[in-house]
């Protein structure tokens, strides 16, 4: 039996209605949804990254690398890794959405990833202060849902970082009250002690890097100290 030419077979199927053309709105809707999804993920990414910068700033771990290898280890230990991993996931999803556009897939993946990374870092730094206001409201328990999230990250109790106010200068260091209301006796190394009276006075807000001698002790053996705003 003679086989029908391909063209005739397809055209016949189209004329009989067994092959239908999807309507234009279907593609418009698809594109609109893609744009909305892309913007949604971008907004989520910026929110997350700006929160990471806020959490780093709020906890004081951003100052830690200035105190050598010990400080760098503390910085790495207390980075909000879960949030960072979720942000990376957002970057991958955003890259996937952007890859649908020719202006993205025609260029190497590295370029689009770098652009997304830069936008999220710059946008994140710029938007980080916005979280301060939310955090203040969360502390007053005015935010029902994200409140505990803000309190957990904004006022984290970290073993090696103490934030608070100087109460007195001592011969071995200083005494302070931390943000949880504990009185701590900070023992400072000699190189800091020599300039203690010049740099600090009671009432100063400070951040101290160092471990307590034991979990129940109030003595903190500090390797770094600095004033904060």
């Amino acid at each position: 039996m003679d086989e029908k030419p391909l063209k005739e077979e397809i055209i016949e199927n189209i004329r009989h209605g067994s092959v239908r053309m999807s309507p234009k709105w279907h593609f418009i809707l698809k594109n609109v949804l893609l744009i909305i999804a892309t913007l949604f993920v971008l907004f989520g990414l910026l929110t997350l990254v700006s929160f990471i910068f806020f959490a780093i700033r709020q906890s004081g771990i951003g100052f830690a690398p200035a105190y050598g290898s010990q400080g760098i280890l503390v910085f790495l230990k207390y980075l909000p890794w879960i949030l960072i991993l979720v942000s990376l996931l957002f970057i991958i999803v955003l890259e996937f959405f952007l890859k649908q556009y020719h202006f993205t897939y025609r260029k190497p993946l590295l370029y689009s990833l770098l652009i997304i990374f830069l936008i999220s870092v710059v946008g994140g730094i710029a938007a980080a202060p916005l979280h301060q206001a939310v955090f203040s409201r969360a502390q007053r328990e005015e935010i029902p849902f994200a409140g505990s999230f803000y309190r957990d990250y904004g006022a984290r109790r970290l073993d090696e970082i103490n934030r608070g106010q100087v109460t007195a200068l001592l011969t071995s260091g200083l005494s302070m009250t931390n943000e949880f209301g504990e009185n701590l006796n900070v023992i400072l190394p000699s190189q800091i002690l020599t300039r203690l009276a010049n740099d600090f006075e009671p009432g100063d807000k400070i951040i101290v890097f160092g471990k307590k001698s034991s979990p129940s002790s109030t003595d903190v053996w500090a390797y770094g100290i600095r004033k904060i705003e």
């Binding site: 391909l6 077979e9 397809i10 199927n13 189209i14 092959v19 239908r20 053309m21 999807s22 309507p23 234009k24 279907h26 593609f27 698809k30």
Partner: peptide
């Protein structure tokens, strides 16, 4: 496969 390609092309031509 060629037939399927043309059918898909027709279905998606508005895109």
């Amino acid at each position: 496969l060629v037939q399927e390609t043309f059918i898909k092309a027709y279905s998606n031509i508005q895109g």
